[in-house]
Amino acid sequence: MTAAQADLQIDRPTVADGAALWRIAKDSKALDLNSSYSYLLWCRDFAGTSAVARDEHGEPVGFVTGYVRPDRPHTLLVWQVAVDGAQRGRGIAAALLDGLVARVGDAYGVTGVETTITPGNTASERLFTSFAERHGAALEREVLFEAGLFPDGPHDPEVLYRIGPLPH
């Protein structure tokens, strides 16, 4: 943990955090924004496979949402990563991802991470590429969902990043 991260607490989200996670996602301008209801449900049903970073006042400033894939129980699918604009550049996303994967690895026996990234999202590409490098894990990429599969207008393809195996 860097000195810039020392005043942060990383833990599980609670339902009371749902509105803040929705706002952080909305303000990111990079994520596909889900309904506010979905963030409340996520904080209730997937708190064990998600993480929130809190500032010195206990307010959420970043989050990672994820779930263990039902058909691949040793794989954590990272759904969204976002950090409040005023907090970016401090390594919070990397600290959240490292902390979550360590916790989920211990709790669920997770040995791999998956996420999808749209081409051109260089921040996410760097985050997951550097995660794989830090953990000495292989990284594979392939298109998971072609642009034409999305029914709600123009959408870039979603590229699957598969990272693993992770060391125990």
Rank of each mutant, 00 (worst) to 15 (best):
I163N: 07
A132D: 01
R88N: 09
V83H: 08
V159Y: 09
L144D: 10
W42M: 14
T75F: 04
R90H: 10
R134P: 00
S28F: 10
D156I: 04
R103I: 00
A132C: 10
A3P: 08
Y67L: 10
H74G: 11
G148H: 11
L8C: 11
A107V: 09
G112N: 13
A51P: 02
H135S: 11
L31S: 06
V113E: 02
A138W: 05
R141P: 05
L31G: 06
V83A: 03
T75G: 00
P73G: 04
G109Y: 03
G136Y: 00
R69A: 15
G112E: 15
A94F: 01
L100I: 04
V101Y: 00
T118E: 13
E140G: 03
T122C: 05
R90P: 02
L77Q: 13
E59F: 01
A6T: 04
T49E: 02
I92N: 02
T2C: 02
S130G: 09
G48S: 11
I92K: 01
L100M: 02
D45I: 00
D71S: 13
G109H: 06
Q87P: 01
Q87C: 12
V143D: 09
G66V: 07
S38D: 13
G105D: 00
I24F: 09
E158V: 08
T65K: 07
A30L: 15
A3E: 14
P157H: 02
D55S: 02
E142Q: 15
D98H: 06
L100C: 05
S38K: 08
A138E: 15
G136S: 13
A94H: 08
R44C: 01
T49L: 00
D11K: 11
Y108I: 02
A53H: 02
Y161T: 10
A6H: 10
D152R: 08
L8S: 03
H168T: 15
V64L: 10
T116V: 11
N121D: 10
N121C: 09
I24W: 06
V113M: 06
E114K: 11
F150T: 07
R23E: 14
L41P: 00
A47P: 13
D84E: 15
E158G: 11
L76S: 06
R54W: 03
E158S: 12
L33V: 14
A19H: 12
G153I: 03
E125L: 03
D106M: 09
D7G: 07
R103K: 01
V159P: 01
R162S: 15
D7E: 15
I117T: 02
R72V: 12
R141H: 13
L31H: 07
N34W: 15
D45S: 09
L96P: 04
R72C: 09
L96A: 04
I24K: 05
T65D: 00
S35H: 01
F63S: 04
V15I: 14
V78G: 02
D17P: 03
L77P: 00
S50G: 07
E133T: 13
D11A: 14
P167H: 11
I117Q: 01
A51Q: 08
P167K: 13
A138D: 14
G89T: 05
Y39G: 10
Y67T: 01
Y108F: 14
D32L: 14
D152H: 04
T116Q: 05
W79N: 11
Y37C: 09
